[in-house]
Design a protein around this nucleic acid. Structure first.
Lengths: 243, 243
DNA sequence: AAAATCACGTTGCATTTGCAACATCGCTCA
DNA sequence: TGAGCGATGTTGCAAATGCAACGTGATTTT
């Protein structure tokens, strides 16, 4: 498959590398691409992988399933995202997560050892990539901490608000679009889907947010934008009736 | 302060390095040590740090505090642990967490840039340390995913059981000791303290576990060890009364 | 030694929330 | 075009759990 050079240039692993070398590099180390249909598994919990993946098109999700069949979505990746690095770099630990295509997706696989240690281009290439890898791993860490910030919250409302606040910061806007539908969003926040819908309606009724489909607007002291609520401003989450 | 060489040899960042070089290295890059009393903050949320820390003695915790004063414990570190690397390696992002001494602790600080890029010993030293750093960051990732496995669980019981299962795997025993007291454990699991105690008692009554202080024994199909419970084996968490 | 602080257990209560079951709607595929 | 499937919204209900308040014992401070 012909991979889009423009896209690869923007992959964080390849920052600072000359894109001319990509094709030679990929064929040298034996890179492959694969197309996945929606729902297909790319990696399975328990696998020991030796390649890292890069999303070329579509959307994929890192998920965790327990013995009762409960699914938790750890992450949702769009094109340019790299996945699997943590497990490969940790020295070949077995996957504690699965990776699944959320839509039809194309994935590029790069054999890690050969990529990092037998790269043809000389030492500059090599060290740049290692530097990129360090930064990627560190950023992934921060992302995971961000995710923990959500799931450690005690109430569903706080979880949702934290999620929205993170999206707002990323998208630099009080109106944000989530890539996740209700089902996935619930599994991402670690809550029940119906309870999530219920709470979303409450939040809208109280004028905290307004939303339509997967588009949400935070109304934290903002001018009324989407149908003013009756009551006053209720920001508190766990203390609506008391204080 | 005179740092314990034996301990430093076991720090994952220094794996494969000759300990003879440590003292020269430290004084060259300007390493410092600091003693903290229980409760003192080592790093504060919002800080931009340029040094990584290594726990020499005591115990420290990585925590997150929200605007309502709720505390979440992300991690609990014993001697030999390295902390702060993620934020430094991510390119100097502001801390989204605080680091606090859980007891009187000694901490060694290493200026990151100088450690990684102007190290006196030649290239072998340098590259070994980078390799170690990659593996550390990756392992931290896996740890965070492990933590997410706990907090995404829907019920308090499942959270506790997941935590115990992880401890059991680490300590390779069905009887485990947690470094955390009730207050901290609750903040680590992201639940209410009193609710945790309540549930622990229930679990013991049902014969799922038995515990005393911070010592827990998992009794998943194990021979009765600590006072046999009356009823049968109840592993299910959210379906005790129905099925 | 007295006092204060902290960790821990216990309990009542109201709210939250998971769970199940059902209706609706839109999309895909035959 | 019609049937089926998946995503979404809705609701009743019971259980889980956060929260506050209090008692006790241990540990630390004065």
């Amino acid at each position: 498959m012909q991979v889009n050079l423009k896209l690869l240039q923007e992959v964080s692993l390849f920052q600072g590398l000359e894109p001319e070398a990509f094709h030679a590099l990929f064929s040298c180390i034996g890179a492959t691409t694969e197309r996945y249909q929606k729902g297909e598994f790319i990696f399975l919990q328990g696998d020991i992988i030796s390649s890292i993946g890069i999303v070329l098109s579509g959307r994929i999700q890192v998920i965790q399933e327990d013995i009762f069949g409960n699914r938790a979505i750890l992450n949702d990746f769009s094109p340019k995202a790299v996945f699997g690095e943590s497990f490969v770099c940790a020295g070949g630990s077995a996957l504690t997560v699965s990776v699944q295509a959320a839509e039809r997706s194309d994935v590029l696989f790069l054999p890690f050892e050969r990529l990092m240690y037998i790269c043809p281009s000389a030492c500059g290439f090599h060290s740049a990539m290692i530097k990129n890898m360090v930064m990627m791993l560190a950023r992934t860490n921060l992302k995971l901490i961000e995710k923990l910030e959500i799931t450690t919250k005690h109430s569903l409302r706080e979880k949702m608000l934290t999620y929205l606040a993170q999206l707002a910061q990323e998208q630099n806007s009080a109106t944000v679009t989530s890539p996740l539908g209700r089902v996935d969003l619930a599994d991402f926040l670690g809550v029940d889907r119906s309870a999530l819908t219920r709470e979303l309606n409450r939040m809208q009724a109280e004028g905290l947010i307004c939303f339509e489909k997967n588009r949400y607007t935070l109304r934290e002291l903002l001018a009324p934008a989407c149908g003013a609520p009756p009551g006053g401003s209720a920001l508190r989450s766990r203390l609506p009736s008391r204080a």
